[in-house]
Nucleic acid binder design. Structure first.
Lengths: 201, 201, 201, 201
DNA sequence: CATGAATGAGTATTCATTCAT
DNA sequence: CATGAATGAATACTCATTCAT
């Protein structure tokens, strides 16, 4: 019942061998490539180079696996974007930083970003996964509300502004995914400037 | 193999007995509600009040059905947004009109909009469905490029700008879907103003 | 959801074709031959000459199937043994009749009898199946108690006497099953006489 | 392949550390509680406080384990019932003794008795286990035949009489198991008297 | 044309057994 | 000797699709 934890293996060294991570990596890639329902458990096992049964030593079910990946990636995203956030900087700087950090996440691990995007509303996400999502949203809402109260952003529902900016960000990624070329630095900067003008007061 | 065409039902008048449309309506609603893989063909048949086998008289497969719906809705979207487009109006007016027409589509038939959004990248979309999508994109690209050449929009890849604006639009919808309240007219107007400022030169 | 009923086909004639009954017959035989867990659903389907999926049109699960068989056979047993029971006859006659009817059931459909015996305490029997069993037991208990009150049977817990007599009956069957020869009429009569002497006052 | 024998532990004294017995005890309890197929090997290992792999150092397979338990318990049953059997006593006394010794076995180690009963006809019992069973049966047959030749028991197939008496015995137990109360001494005596009257000439 | 009962290929999941440590 | 993580063969069950009526 007690499933092996990730931490123990992080110490292991020896160059990998962490089955739990192997499985999550393989599953993430396949879910992005072929979708959740389009991916079979044996396929995940093959790609992770483990037996099919092994997956069930680490995850209760295929659903539990996708939820674990979702949470892990969402939290990694959160950490990358929010760690050591310059609370005192001007809003303009903060906006740029958020945007560029997100861009880095999306550029360095595009699979992860696409995965989070695709599974945002998936039926198989459980309550805890949705909570992770909700917590991050709250942080953004506070950020917006504060800036609005200083008169630096347009008035209006913070959620609306967030939806707009995040939507635009995703739109930029999608555009590049469809063109099958990674978005250049210039693209990210242009988009960032556009969206700042969209929300600034 | 000779599948009944949609036109046959258009002739039927009185709106009764159009099985093809009944099936598509039922499927659209269920796909939005439970996803493509979460919906079984017999369920669609039940909701459409036809026999399960009947669906295969109108559509070659479940995949063909979802593609037919995608194309039909995408084209309806295109017509609603582009019909009688005021080619001569100022760009600002054109932008507002596009946005508001899209808003009307999304507000009047939210299921259709969500469906198009959710299935944008679905694996089961075939080449023809992607072509419908591509044609519409071309129209937008020309619109943007023209406006750019007149110096009214920011320079940059038209696809990038489209991705950004469409993404933001979707973000607004999603936000409201999550809050389970239809976006108000004020929301749409605010968002429209924001995004205009995002793209105008 | 609404599963086809047995009655409709009983009328059908045409010499069989009743899938539900085919499945139950095949399953009964296999459960006796190889046990519940030793029988796979495809095996049942093969023997019943239906597709594996067809079984699930008639029974929710393998468990539901074994329960349905249990109930059907238990009730058939009850009917055969108790129908038109001569309430007014002397206890000795009643005892003989019960015993011989049970013997007929066990001789004519030995699989059914063995099945009921083997699955008496099976973990997969649900509440309803146990109720069928309990109701029949109640009838026997009343029969015993009445005879005891007339001083014709030994005093003592009716359940104990029933357990003893039924146990002895099963013992006779088992003995013959092990010898792989059907119990002769003389055997049944001898055993009946023995057990009467066991319980009479 | 050279599996540790039971004797080695008999030497150990103090009763501690005897893994083979720990495993058999745990398995017996679980098999009775949840059935053979309802019990997993790791569960047995947990209950026996040994590693799952250890079980395979003492038993070739799960089947071999259940067979070993069956033989051991059957032989313990035989010893308890037949040791120092008073060959010269009157048949009535012998019958009473057999019955009461069986009752003691069933009362003192009900799990063992239920186990023997439940697995009497199990598919996974191998030839040797059946031989143990057969040998004991032979002893009983001789006992019966002798008594019959002295005219003390009813004529008829000894096996039939044995089946009847043993069946009745099991019926008494089952009755008490169902009522979830251990059979009282009075119950055992009543039943013994009944069954003696059943078989005596 | 319409139907829906029947199908069986395909999937997630379990668990006896092995073997590197 | 003992272990328990890893394995993969085996099994119950689902559902898109067909076809006899």
């Amino acid at each position: 019942m007690a499933v092996p934890t990730k931490s123990s293996s992080a110490v292991a060294g020896k160059g990998g061998g962490d089955k739990r991570e192997q499985i999550m990596d393989a599953a993430l890639a396949l879910f992005v490539e072929r979708g959740f329902y389009g991916t079979t458990v044996p396929e995940i096992a093959d790609r992770a180079v483990v037996g099919a049964g092994t997956i069930y030593r680490y995850f209760e079910s295929k659903d539990a696996l996708v939820n674990a990946i979702y949470r892990a990636e969402k939290m990694r995203f959160g950490r990358l974007v929010l760690d050591a956030f310059p609370v005192a900087s001007p809003t303009r700087e903060q906006f740029r930083l958020l945007w560029m950090r997100m861009a880095r996440f999306a550029t360095e691990t595009p699979d992860s970003f696409v995965f989070l995007e695709l599974h945002h509303h998936a039926r198989y996400l459980d309550a805890e996964s949705r909570t992770v999502e909700a917590r991050m949203l709250d942080l953004f809402i506070h950020f917006i509300a504060n800036a609005q109260s200083r008169g630096e952003l347009k008035a209006g529902s913070p959620r609306l502004l967030i939806g707009m900016v995040m939507g635009a960000f995703v739109g930029v990624i999608r555009n590049c995914v469809e063109l099958e070329q990674p978005p250049g630095d210039a693209d990210w900067k242009l988009a960032e400037q556009c969206m700042w003008e969209a929300v600034r007061s």
